[in-house]
Structures are given as structure tokens and as C-alpha cells.
Amino acid sequence: MKKAAAATPASVIDLRFGQVGLLQVRLREVDAPAIKAELAARIASAPQFFQHTGVCLDLSALEHPPEVATLRGIVEAIRLAGMITVGVSDASPTADQLAPALDLPVLAGFRQLSRPPAQLVRAAKAAAQPAPEAVSEPEPEIAPPPPTSGLVHTQPVRSGQRVYARERDLIVTAAVGAGAEVMADGCVHVYGTLRGRAMAGVRGDTNARLFCQEFRAELVAIAGVFRVFETLPEELAGHPVQAWLEGEALRFSRFGV
């Protein structure tokens, strides 16, 4: 997942550019009290999941550039919600100007350029192919072409383990235990019981899907849109299920009905 950009054998630190999971808060309005209220409501559904989570402010959906003071209010609202703002995304001139004023870095992510959604989807698809690197990889070294077949994992994924398929699908032919995580930039297939967490399209591919043989998941996420299952819906529990994104909404359906 990470590539060393500069490291000598004797050095005491490694400098690495890497990708880490980060909760993105995309602002539609800059109304700090409303944001605070909505964050509190969302967090109440899964408090553990958000505690001390790093947050990246996504400004791409805002029509007008916000005031620095307004953004400070929002950062404070996020802090009060128990999360920590670690950066601003949306590599537009807006963010470039605002971020230093807030003492935050600009995080150029996968959705680096503010593009309309249709282009985003295409970019996500393109990530699966070697030719146009849509990802803003900072490392200049030549990356080998990503493997085209999925990552096949034949052992059970046990509680506490994490399996990630970078730039491809993940195929697990055994069970995924409660407290385990399976992640892929592409689709996730589980030919066993899925009791843990499954995340497809972790770098933003909204076309990624989740398929599993026996659905008992704790959490399902596709391209960052997630749902926590405190109780499993009767119609899904224990059945073969697929999940996909429709716009911003996660959809679930059973196979063979």
C-alpha cells in the first residue's frame, strides 16, 4: 500500500507517501450549527466508528468559497463531535488559499480535480486500467502495471485481520470473521459467510460492488458510503446478497429471489 519515497537503511525514520483511509466531510452548506447537529445524529448510529477519526474537509460541493472564520467554526464543530480535522481536500485555488489560513494541509486525493460526477465515474473505472493514471501518485518511480486478476484469498479472514486488494477486486473463498475487514479498490466477493466489515471501491470507485454468499456483515461501505448493521435485516440475514451504490445511496438485494 505504501512505497518508500526516501529511506536509507541506517536512517531512524522512513519518509513515505502513502494512502490511508480518511473520513471525508463534504460540505454542502457552511452552516456550522446545522453541521454540528447533523454530525451528532450520524455519529450516534455508530459512535465507536467515529471516535478520534481524522476528517478531511471536502469543499468541492460548495458554490462559493467560504470565509476563513466560517471554516474555523466548522472545524470546531467537528472537534466537538469527537473527530479531528486533518486537512482540506479539493485542490482548487479556494482550498489552496483557505488551508494555510486554517493551518491545515491541502490533501490532494483520488478525486483531486473537481470534476462533474460523470467524469468521476470514468476516472474510477480508468483506475482499474494501467494506461491513464488518474491517481495523483506523488512518487515519481515507475509503478508496475497493476495485476488484472483479482486478489484471491483462500484462508479464513479472522477477527482483527485486514485484507486489502489494491487496484483490483478481492475474492475471498472462505469466511470473513466478525471484527475482520476486507477491502478492495474494486469489487469484494466473499464465497463464505461475511460476518465482519466489507469495503468496496475504497478509492472512490462508485461502480464497485459487494457480493457475498452468506450475509451477516457488521458494516458495508462502497466508495465511502457506508451502512452499519446493528441488527441484520430479516430479508438479508444469512442469504446471498449483493450491495451497490445508486447515487449516494447504498442498495442491497438478495440473489436468487
Binding site: P156, R158, S159, G160, Q161, G177, A180
Partner: peptide, 13 residues
């Protein structure tokens, strides 16, 4: 059972 699952994961890694 949950803790055993964790231990089995450690045994495999």
C-alpha cells in the same frame, strides 16, 4: 468464539 477467531488469525500470521 470471537477471541478464538482472533487467535486463529494470529496463528496464521
Amino acid at each position: 468464539v470471537r477471541d478464538s477467531d482472533r487467535i486463529l488469525g494470529l496463528l496464521a500470521s
